Computed example of a mutant assay.
Amino acid sequence: MAIILIIDDDLHIGNVLEETLTNEGYGVIRAYSGTEAVLLFSQTKPDLVLLDLMLPGLSGEEVLTHMKGIPVIVISAKVDVEHKVDLLLGGAVDYVTKPFHTKELLARIAVHLRTFETLGKAGILTFEEIELDIDTHIVKIKNAEIKLTRTEYAILKLLMQNPTQVISKSQLLDRISEDTPDCTESSLKTHISNLRKKLREVSGKEYVEAVWGIGFKMKTE
Rank of each mutant, 00 (worst) to 15 (best):
A210F: 06
Q161N: 08
E201C: 00
V211A: 12
R150V: 13
T149W: 06
R200G: 07
K198C: 13
Q165T: 13
L199V: 10
L159Y: 08
S177M: 13
S168F: 00
V211E: 08
G215F: 07
I167D: 04
A210Y: 09
E152Q: 15
H191I: 00
K197W: 06
S177V: 05
N194G: 11
T164F: 10
C183K: 01
V208N: 03
S170A: 15
R196S: 15
T149H: 09
Q161R: 09
Y207Q: 02
T149P: 02
K198P: 09
P163E: 07
Y153K: 02
S168K: 07
I146Q: 03
I146P: 01
W212M: 11
K197V: 02
S186G: 06
C183S: 13
I155W: 00
I176D: 10
E152H: 03
P181D: 12
V166L: 07
C183M: 13
N194I: 11
W212L: 15
V202H: 10
M218V: 06
V208P: 04
I146W: 00
S186T: 07
S168N: 03
R175P: 00
Q171H: 09
G204A: 10
S187W: 01
V202R: 12
S187C: 03
I192D: 04
Q165Y: 08
K205H: 10
I167S: 04
S187E: 01
L159C: 02
S193C: 03
T190M: 12
S203Q: 04
D182H: 09
R200D: 08
E209R: 13
K217I: 09
G215P: 05
S193K: 15
E209A: 11
S186Y: 03
L195S: 11
Y153L: 14
L199K: 05
T184I: 02
I176W: 05
E178S: 13
T180F: 01
D174Y: 02
L158F: 01
V211R: 01
V202C: 12
I192G: 05
N162Q: 11
A154D: 03
